[in-house]
Design a protein around this nucleic acid. Sequence first.
DNA 1: GCTTGCGTTCGAGCGCGCTCGAACTCCTAG
DNA 2: CTAGGAGTTCGAGCGCGCTCGAACGCAAGC
Lengths: 161, 161
Amino acid sequence: MATDDLMSRALAALDEVDGPMSVEVIHRLVDVGAATDLMTIAEVADLLDMSPHTLRYYERIGLVEVARDASGHRSYDAETVRRLVFLTRMRLSGMAIRDLQHYVRLADEGDDTVPERLDLLLEHRETIRRQLKELTLSLAATEYKIATYGGHAGPSSAGKA
Amino acid sequence: MATDDLMSRALAALDEVDGPMSVEVIHRLVDVGAATDLMTIAEVADLLDMSPHTLRYYERIGLVEVARDASGHRSYDAETVRRLVFLTRMRLSGMAIRDLQHYVRLADEGDDTVPERLDLLLEHRETIRRQLKELTLSLAATEYKIATYGGHAGPSSAGKA
DNA sequence: GCTTGCGTTCGAGCGCGCTCGAACTCCTAG
DNA sequence: CTAGGAGTTCGAGCGCGCTCGAACGCAAGC
C-alpha cells in the first residue's frame, strides 16, 4: 500500500523528467522513510510491501542489522529503512540475494570497497538494460498475439491523460 | 504466421536499444519458420538458448507435443518451434509455467477459447508493463547510486540525446 | 487476572523451474 | 567390428527465496 504510494509518486516524478534521471527525483524516492524516525516491523513491511517474515529473513541472512527496543522488538531507524529500500529495489530488478549479501559485506567494510561496489552496480545496470530489452520484446510479442486474437488496444499506453 | 510483423514491431519498439541478443534472436526467429522444416532437439535448444533437458521437461509437462522420427528421436516441426518461441517469450516476461499450461490447454481446446486466451494475454500485457515500470525505477535507482559512487556515465544512457 | 494481539526465535517446509544421472538405444565413422 | 556421440526414459535432486508453524514474551484493555 505504502509502496504503491511510493511507486506512484516516483512514477509521477519520473514522468516529469524526460531526460536523464535527475538525482533529486531519486532522492525523493530514497527519502521516503525519512518522515518517521523509528518504525516497527509491521510498518516497514507495509511500507516495502513485504511480509514481516521476509524482513526477519533478510536480517537473518545478514542483509541488515536491526536494533531492538526495550521489550526486544525490532526497531528500524531511517538508515536501515533506506538500506531496505535499496535492497528491495535491487531485488525487484533481479539481483540475487547472494549478490546483495556480497554488496552489503563490501559496504560494511568501508570506503575502500567503493570501487568494487561500483563495479557491481555497473554490472547490474547492464543486467537491467538487458531485461528491459527482453521485456520490450515480450511486450511486442504479446501485443502481436493480442492483435491476432482481435484484441483491443487496452488501457493506457496511448491515451494517457 | 506473420513473424515479419512481429519482427518489425519489435524492432520498432527496440530502436533505442541496441544489443547483440535481442535483434539476433529475432533474426533467428524469422529464419526458423522459413528455412528448416524439421529440427533436432539440439538445434531447437541452441535456437532458443535453452538446454535439451528443459525442452524435454516442457514436453513432459504438456507445453508441447513433439513428434518422433524413425529411431525415436524428437523431431520439431515449424509449428512446434513457433509455439516454443512463444512460450519462451512468455517465460522470459515472467509468465508462470502453470499459466502457460493453462494457456496451452485452452489453445488445444479450439477457437471457442480465444476470448479467454485474449484475457490472459491482456492481463499478461499489464504485468509486463508493470515490470517495465519497476525496472525503469530500479535502473534510475542504480544510476543514482552509481552517481554517488562517482561512477562514469557508462555506455549510452545519460549523455544520450 | 485474563484475553488479545503483536512481537520474538528457531528450524523446517515448500513451490518453482529446472537440472542431472543412470541406464539404455541407435546411427555413423574409422 | 567397434567406438563414440547424440539421443531416449525415468525419477530424483537442487538452488532459490521465501513462508510457515510452534512455542513463547510482553504490554494494554476489560
